[in-house]
Amino acid sequence: MVMGTSTAARKARWAILDIIVVVYALVPVLWIASLSFKTKETLADGNFVPREWTLQNYAEIFATSEFIRPLINSIGIASIATLIAVVLGMMAAYAIARLDFPGKRTLIGVSLLIAMFPQISLVTPLFNIEHALGLFDTWPGLILPYITFALPLAIYTLSAFFREIPWELEKAAKMDGATPAQAFRRVIAPLAAPGVFTTAILVFIFAWNDFLFAISLTSTEASRTVPAALAFFTGTSQFEDPTGTISAAAVVITIPIIVFVLFFQRRIVAGLTSGAVKG
């Protein structure tokens, strides 16, 4: 009985703590969501729950190419950058975790340096370089810097995962008749999958959320991504306040991230490697 009350009290304490954390984190998001459902007249009434619900804002953003085109750009650029960064990162991380090659320390050092570099200081040179190369305002123009800045992150995360995979598994695969490529694909890659998905999520979120490069290295709808496009939103007339549509767009662009995380979260199963060796 005494035990029962103490666990109940414990549960209650934890529940309160959890609620505080969730509310603290989610209020701004809910507010944006609330704004996006409000009509233009009630936008500034200060109510948390809209008095009049409307989908007008959503209808408006999807009615123009002003939002749809950047959305396509965002999805395309972030996905391609994620794919390339993860594939390159896997190869580099595997080499770092398994092989001893000349210049390994330098490679790790340089990648750390890139990760620490303030991106704002690179915007101007990148702008000039991309102009000269004709990459300005193109998809590759954004994909390349995203890969560059996502790679250190990818390499670090992945090499930690690769290091945890016992080397003997690879030797066993070789003895079982696998080529090095087969050993990697059928034994190492499945075991590193949780790491790969974690890395993919991190890289995708980085590319998806980026505003600095998106605003500086694009000029038209040809490659402008959503975070940048939001800044250019205007109302139907010059004097109209675009708050409602911006909120709606903001809600829409958080959805892919949520979907992405939920989809891959199931694959991030901890302890997948347990049982490989005596444990």
Partner: peptide
């Protein structure tokens, strides 16, 4: 080959 750690694929 049989390894000391068995090296089974988990």
């Amino acid at each position: 080959m049989v390894f000391q750690s068995y090296a089974l694929y988990p």
